[in-house]
Structures are given as C-alpha cells and as structure tokens.
C-alpha cells in the first residue's frame, strides 16, 4: 500500500514537473508547425534534419530515449518512416505514441495524397502504397495539417486548447496572406518544365504548376545510373527542361552532371525547414524556395 502511494506520488510529481507538452516530430517541417501552434506550451524534439534523407534514418538510441518521454508523436506518414519509426514506437515503452492513440498524429492522413500507385510492385522502385509522402511542399496542405494538429493538441492538453486555437488562427492568417504572395510570385513558374532528382517536389510542382518532365532516379529510391541520365539527356532535345531540382539531402553529382551537359541550372531547394540558411522556419522555407526557383528562371 505504501509502495503504491509512493508510486502515485512519483507519477503525480512527474506529471507536474513538465507542464509543457512534449512533441516528437519525425521531420523538421512538422516540428516547425508544432512550434508555430504550440509556442511556449510545447517543447518540440525534431528527430531528423534537412541534410538527412528522411527515408534512411536509423532507430538510434537517442531517438528511443526521446520517444520514451513524448506526449505526441508527429509523423509524416505514408510509409516515409517505415524503416525506423515502427521500431522507435515499439521499443520506446511509451503507450501514448502508439499508432491509433491520440498521441500519434500522421500528417499524410489529413490531406489527399498525390501519386497513389495503381499497382503495388517493387519493380517500380520504392513506391509508397498510400501515396507520395512529401506533402508539405504545397502550403495549402500545411494549413490542413495545422487545422488537424491544433485539434489534436487541444485534445491532449484541454486547458490550453483555446490558446492553441488562438495561436493557430494567428498563424493561419499570416499563412493565408503568404500563400497569396507566393502564388503571385510563382505565377511566372506555371508550365515551366523541370527535371527532379527524386519525387520529393510533386506537391510543389502541383501547386505552382511546374511541369516535371523527368526524374534523375530511374525509379523512386534507386540511385541515378549513367544509362538513365544519358536517356534523359536525349529526351532533353525534344522536351527541354528549364532547371534541375534537388533537395539538400540528395547527392549533387547527378544533377551537376546533367547541368554540365545541358547548361540548365541546378536549383538546390531547401526541401524542409533548415535546408538552407534562409529556411529557418516554414515561411522562410517557401520564401527561399520561390526565390531560388525564380532566380533560376531569369
């Protein structure tokens, strides 16, 4: 009985000790969104950074230790983290962040995904059954995810629900205005043909109207081969692309090779928050992305 009391006291004190909600975000973009909405009411740990390929993360001990203490796990979903997150969830001993619990939030479940494969066959490369998971590069998706996230934060932390709502309304207002600005700036990009390293810019292209005419990877997740790049060059004659897009975590050799052969500029896009010095937050991410695209167009 005494032991039980002690345990209860311990549990109670540990609850009081961290009043703020602990958020474990798998990728920087959703960590940044949690910070925008949660402000000082949440402490956000971001498991990966912009220089890391989000498909290839290892279930490192440090990630387990952080997941153990999290109240909310924000994942990109759509199997982006299939290679490591399930292990982190299971081995964390944290019941709150298991799939299906309120403490597990998946961004991909909040929006309509593009590139949903009609056929599931690995002969087509590393395909994601649910659709393309790089959904944050359409800013309208960020808003949808934010709407769902603010509800979830409110459920997990009811006393602060109004504060989360207020913070989100403030963010959403600024974000809507920014979308208007970006769309105006990006009007010049409509219909511009581009080559991409990986299918990581599908949502960006869809939003801005960029026309993806080729991919440096022969199949999603398969490294560019010289044969495939040569074939792309041949296509360049008939379907000339204006630029080659790659994310900060992609190797630069294939895109540089194509650029050297064709004279088309390579645009290194930040891809996520922290991917370039200017992409310090979500606003910076899109400001910088548009600026880099427009600069390449000139």
């Amino acid at each position: 009985m005494k032991k039980l009391l002690c345990l209860c006291l311990l549990a109670g004190s540990s609850l009081l000790a961290h009043a703020e909600l602990r958020v474990f975000a798998t990728v920087p973009e959703w960590g940044a969104l949690a910070k925008e909405i949660g402000g000082p009411r949440v402490s956000v740990y971001t498991a990966t950074h912009a220089q890391q390929d989000p498909h290839r993360i290892e279930a490192r001990p440090s990630l387990l230790a952080q997941a153990r203490r999290a109240d909310l796990l924000i994942a990109a979903g759509a199997d982006l983290e299939a290679g490591w997150l399930p292990v982190v969830q299971r081995e964390s001993g944290n019941a709150a962040i298991q799939s299906g619990r309120p403490g597990y939030f998946e961004a991909a479940a909040q929006v309509r995904l593009l590139d949903v494969p009609a056929v599931l066959d690995r002969a087509h490369g590393d395909v994601h059954a649910a659709g393309n998971p790089h959904l944050h590069l359409d800013p309208r998706n960020v808003l949808k995810v934010g709407e769902a996230l603010v509800r979830r934060l409110g459920e997990l932390d009811p006393p602060q629900a109004a504060a989360y709502q207020a913070a989100f309304r403030d963010f959403a207002g600024r974000w809507q205005a920014a979308i208007g600005r970006w769309e105006q700036q990006g009007a010049a990009l409509r219909g511009v043909p581009v080559l991409v390293h990986h299918q990581s810019f599908v949502y960006l292209s869809h939003w801005l109207g960029l026309r993806e005419v080729g991919m440096l990877e022969p199949k999603p997740g398969v490294e560019p081969s010289s044969g495939h790049l040569t074939a792309l060059l041949a296509r360049q004659q008939g379907q000339p692309a204006r630029m080659v897009l790659r994310a900060a975590y992609n190797s630069d050799a294939p895109s540089q090779w194509v650029a050297g052969k064709t004279g088309v500029p390579v645009v290194l896009l930040p891809y996520t928050v922290g991917g370039s010095p200017a992409a310090g937050d979500l606003f910076g991410l899109f400001d910088d992305t548009l600026q880099r695209l427009l600069q390449a167009l000139r």
């Binding site: 540990s14 001990p61 440090s62 387990l64 230790a65 203490r69 001993g93």
Partner: peptide, 12 residues
C-alpha cells in the same frame, strides 16, 4: 521484461 529510463540519454 525491459525498462527504458525517462532520461535524455538512452538507458535500458
């Protein structure tokens, strides 16, 4: 039976 300590360092 495993227990992961609630510490910033991984301790199991």
């Amino acid at each position: 039976l495993k227990w992961l300590a609630p510490t910033p360092v991984f301790l199991e």
